[in-house]
Structures are given as C-alpha cells and as structure tokens.
C-alpha cells in the first residue's frame, strides 16, 4: 500500500500529459479558432466556377489570412456557385467594392479566395455580397486555350 502514492502521482502526471497533448492538438494543430471565434461577419460572392475550392479554405487579402470559407452552395437560378466567407471581426474595414478571385497556392497547392480592396468609403457588412468576382483558373481550360491559340497561330 505504500507504493500506491507514487503510482497515483505517476498516473496523475500521465493523465495530465495526455490531456495536455489533446489540448495542444485542439488549440495549436486544429482550426478550433474557426469554431470558437464566431464573432466575425459573413459575406458572400458568386463565382462562375470555383475550381477545387473547399469549405474552410482561407480567405486572404494582400496574402494575409483574414477569414475562411464557411459554405459553398449552387444557385440553380443563376447557375453560379455562391461562396460564403466568414471574416474575422477585426478586419471590419473592407471597401464595399472589393473584388474576389479564386487562386491556387503554388502550382499544386490548395485553392483560396483572394480579396482585392476597392476604393469605396463604405465597408462590407454582415450579409453583403461582393459583386466583382473572377473565377478559378482551371488548368485544363488554360491548356486547351493555349493549344487552341497555338494551332490558330500555326494555321496563319
């Protein structure tokens, strides 16, 4: 029975370490901030083609991550993809006439939404829609266009 105290201490240390590891996985590794920090505001944008964009992809302005894609749905009236984005509350001064594009991080990296600030005095608010958008560059389309133009050039 004398050993039991040492055993209890060790088990205590073990359990504390285990939960610390879980906490680290949650806080430092995962996107828990995306779940906890819901204070931001949501805006949306309509794209002709979103390429490989997924939910939780980053939203960037000048390369800095300011929010994430919170939802993607298809509008069957306009035949467009509606991408909703949750922007962190501290970035509350985005001009109303900003434009949104879908870029790829590196040649094979993930897709993200890049915002380009406009010049309007007014700022985007909860529920606003970004009007000026540019679709994702789809590699197959690009290659197709390239080949097409090359063949036209050689025809001439």
């Amino acid at each position: 029975m004398r050993q039991s105290r040492a055993i209890e201490i060790w088990v205590g240390i073990f359990v504390a370490l285990g939960f610390l590891a879980l906490l680290m996985l949650a806080m430092k590794v995962s996107n828990i901030t995306g779940y906890v920090d819901n204070k931001g505001y949501e805006i949306s944008a309509a794209f002709e083609n979103i390429g490989g964009l997924t939910v939780r992809a980053p939203v960037r302005i000048a390369g800095v991550r300011i929010g994430r894609v919170s939802g993607i749905r298809y509008d069957s009236d306009t035949f467009q993809a509606i991408v909703s984005m949750r922007i962190d509350a501290r970035y509350n001064r985005l001009p109303l006439d900003s434009s949104a594009s879908i870029f790829t991080d590196g040649l094979l990296g993930e897709n993200y939404v890049g915002l380009e600030p406009g010049g309007d005095e007014e700022s985007l608010k909860e529920g606003d829609r970004i009007e000026i958008t540019q679709s994702a560059l789809v590699l197959e389309k690009l290659i197709g266009q390239f080949l097409f133009s090359r063949s036209q050039e050689s025809d001439q």
Binding site: N31, R56, P58
Partner: peptide, 19 residues
C-alpha cells in the same frame, strides 16, 4: 508550419475522429 496546419486540420473531422 503552424498556420497551414490550423487551416487544414479540422477539430471534429480529424482530431475527434482520431480520438
């Protein structure tokens, strides 16, 4: 290393399922 990780690892889909 850390920020890319946080952007791509989901608390429920990845970590909770691993647990």
């Amino acid at each position: 290393y850390w920020s890319q990780m946080q952007a791509n690892v989901d608390l429920f889909d990845d970590i909770a399922n691993g647990v």
